[in-house]
């Protein structure tokens, strides 16, 4: 039930909602809990709300951390 899905912000509307694309499907979501999003951001979507913006630089850390071991 605590599942949150990553998706990309496609459009932001004046009523503090946004269209989020998740694997080709468009979902409308409230930005009440995360108003700082921009078009093109990847966000976590849960129960009709954006919970957080996914941080690209942090997302890369795991791959950098293990890079030495992968080489």
């Amino acid at each position: 039930m605590c599942l949150a899905i990553p998706g990309m912000v496609k459009k932001i509307f004046n009523d503090n909602t946004a269209e989020i694309e998740i694997g080709g499907i468009i979902k409308k979501a409230s930005l009440d809990l995360a108003p700082q999003v921009s078009v093109g951001d990847y966000v976590l979507l849960h129960a009709g709300f954006v919970l957080e913006v996914i941080k690209e630089e942090k997302a890369r850390e795991i791959f950098q951390a293990w890079k030495g071991n992968l080489d």
Binding site: D32, E52, E56, E61
Partner: peptide, 15 residues
């Protein structure tokens, strides 16, 4: 860390 900050989501917590 791509989705969790040490302080969490302060807007959500305040609501």
């Amino acid at each position: 860390s791509r989705a969790v900050k040490p302080e969490g989501n302060e807007i959500a917590l305040s609501k």
